[in-house]
């Protein structure tokens, strides 16, 4: 009898996760439903301006999507090579004790509060970049993207390293026995063997970068700007939500509803990447 009660309690806890997902989807759909009564899907996806709070209101999500994509691309340009190199080094070259020491320290990079990273981007990275590019504005996507990249390095390196270490030892031995060096074995056998895992790491990294909020809100400016030039200021989907939340918007107004519509787009993008990413992770776990 007591066992039965316990089991039901445990099950209920497990269901919290399911309800959270349902609630997220429900709230986003419900609140943006009101938004889409005013705004057609055509306008939402084709208008090139996003000014829901202005008198001359435009509701084109594209400027926000462009900002999100640009910062994400900059972040990946930093994080993918750095993260992968670190993963290869840790998995194939580093002695055991170096790996065990460095990994947790590296993970601290991912644990720094994002608002601190935002400060770092605004007060340190941007002035540094301006030293090389004098015409760079104080708010720009480049510095935000670079810092996000740094932030997701440990994430990419740890998922990639797991994938590489899942490549069985006999595969490496086959290569070493042919007279390959460590680097050759890593690049020609381990990396191709861990390919789906690496892809998963990159995709999960993308999803992180897309959802990152504070760094862009602080360092990239908050004006929606349809551009793919990282040197310009722009708002991302997340930065827009923050911007609106900082103001005092009436519950139920179109401005209030617009952040849920933006959130829905954000959720759709990250969900897509997460599904692909987790699918690939499962694949590399099963491969050997």
């Amino acid at each position: 009898m007591r066992d039965r009660v316990v089991e039901i309690l445990l099950l209920a806890s497990g269901l919290v996760a399911v309800f959270t997902t349902l609630a997220i989807v429900g709230v986003l759909l419900f609140e943006s439903g009101g938004f889409f009564e005013h705004v057609t899907l055509k306008e939402f996806f084709t208008d090139t301006m996003w000014t829901p709070l202005f008198a001359d209101a435009h509701y084109g999500i594209m400027p926000l999507v462009a900002g999100t994509l640009t910062t994400t691309v900059v972040a990946l340009v930093v994080a993918v090579p750095l993260g992968t190199t670190i993963a290869i080094y840790l998995s194939e070259f580093a002695p055991h004790n170096v790996r065990e020491t460095v990994k947790p320290i590296l993970e601290l990079l991912g644990a720094v509060p994002t608002v601190v990273y935002g400060y770092f981007a605004l007060t340190m990275v941007t002035p540094l970049l301006q030293y090389f590019m004098p015409e760079l504005p104080g708010f720009n996507m480049l510095s935000a993207g670079l810092v996000i990249g740094l932030m997701i390095v440990p994430y990419i390196s740890s998922v990639s390293e797991d994938a590489m270490r899942a490549v069985p030892r006999y595969m490496r031995e086959g290569s070493y026995a042919m007279g390959a060096t460590r680097l050759q074995t890593a690049l020609r056998v381990v990396v191709p063997g861990a390919f789906s895992g690496l892809a998963a790491a990159f995709i999960l990294g993308i999803s992180r970068a897309v959802g990152e909020t504070m760094v862009v809100a602080i360092a990239a400016g908050m004006q929606p700007n349809l551009t793919f030039d990282p040197r310009e200021p722009a708002a991302t989907i997340t930065a827009y939500i923050v911007q609106v939340s900082l103001g005092d918007l009436a519950h139920g107004s179109i401005g209030y509803q617009s952040i849920f519509a933006a959130g829905l787009v954000l959720m759709a993008i990250t969900l897509m990447f997460n599904v692909i990413g987790f699918g690939l992770t499962r694949k590399f776990r099963e491969a050997y």
């Binding site: 997220i24 986003l28 959802g211 954000l266 959720m267 990250t270 997460n274």
Partner: peptide
């Protein structure tokens, strides 16, 4: 994998 701001929404 859900972005934290979505929890905010």
């Amino acid at each position: 994998g859900v972005p934290s701001i979505v929890y905010g929404l």
